[in-house]
Nucleic acid binder design. Sequence first.
DNA 1: TCTGGGGTCCTAGGACCC
DNA 2: TCTGGGGTCCTAGGACCC
Length: 417
Amino acid sequence: MCSPVQRTVFHLDMDAFFVSVEELFDPSLRGKAVVVGGRPNERGVCAAASYEARKFGVHSAMPLRTAYKLCPHAIFVDGHPERYREYSGKVFKILRNFTPQVEMASIDEAYLEMTGTERLHGPPLLAAHHLSRAIKSGTQLNCSIGIASSRLVAKVASDQAKPHGILWVMSGQESRFLAPLEVRKIPGIGRVMEENLHALGIRYVGDLARLQPEFLEEKFGQWGLAMAGKAQGLDAGGWFDEAIGSHEDPKSISHEHTYSEDTKDGQQLEATLARLSEMVGRRLREHQLHAQTVQLKLRYSDFSTITRAHTLPTRTQLDNDIFEQVRTLFRKNWDSHRTVRLLGVHVSSMDENEGQLGLLDDEKHRKWKDALTTADRLRDKFGENAVSLASGMRARYRERTHENPASLPGKSKKTED
DNA sequence: TCTGGGGTCCTAGGACCC
DNA sequence: TCTGGGGTCCTAGGACCC
């Protein structure tokens, strides 16, 4: 009798990643209550909290002001995304050295396909210890590792192993491992679904596992079926099912901005849209992608939020195309009596190709593309503030509205820039 | 709890076509 | 001219993750 080859997946999760990186740059933070994300009187939420701060109930996604009330003696520091990207890159390199099938699931966690690597790395527990030590010596950072036969169980295991631990859920033990955990521990079950399940008397994964899949499907549709599988530790459906390391292009790109003070200054709002459009365009060019659908996000002071989208006849990666679309959506949909808290620019339906262009548009299009590529290179070389088309747009916009309100910048304007 | 920013996926309804 | 059914695309909103 021959059994199928047992799959082995590692999930590696960095411990208190943002806080730990900040401690490398400022060792005086070590062992203290630290909150990363901004000043306690700012609008915003905690991006991360040290284990010391967590003892006081502070956790990530908590408003900074609330964190301050719970833990006033905490040290509040600004986040440094470039530092986190740098260290994330270091981690990735170490993992790639270890085994080829690696996938960064976010800035501080990764999946490793370890099936069939025993001859090279030894049994899973030993391999994980070596890997943990390699991460420590290469980055000075701690991580936790979950080992299991599916991505889902490996991820839950690494969470249970924290901090700085390794946990192996052996094949056949998945259900027994998951059963006593709260349903919230299953990735994909958040606050709302947890409440729904509680209302049905379901608190633990074991309760969930005992139910008929048909019952969950009837209650929650496709997602109910997927949950039934997850309760058994299966990578049921969606992203979890995909092979580790089959990296794909992003499906959407967005940037948004929350004002430190709400505003209804139309020029300020449109200048923000210009800046966000530039950031989105730049990311598209970095990925060599073109987007067809442009979406505006608008949040008013009372937190009510609308999104309005438009699909273009062809795809684009140009700041100005994005900006003009999003500005049109903005002018059509903004209730100018109401103050705005947040604006966002989002693009999707992306592809490497741009689709057909009219001959007339072609020349103008090429010039813009060249100019923007040059601007991107300048920013790479001299920093983000070296070039700004947004401030230029705002200046011209002011000029034009003063001189001649009829000639606002639009699709027909000549590209004198 | 006065609530960031970057993503993914899912649902539901309407338009449109055959 | 009282009204079917399936497929696909688009839009809006929301849950969820880190």
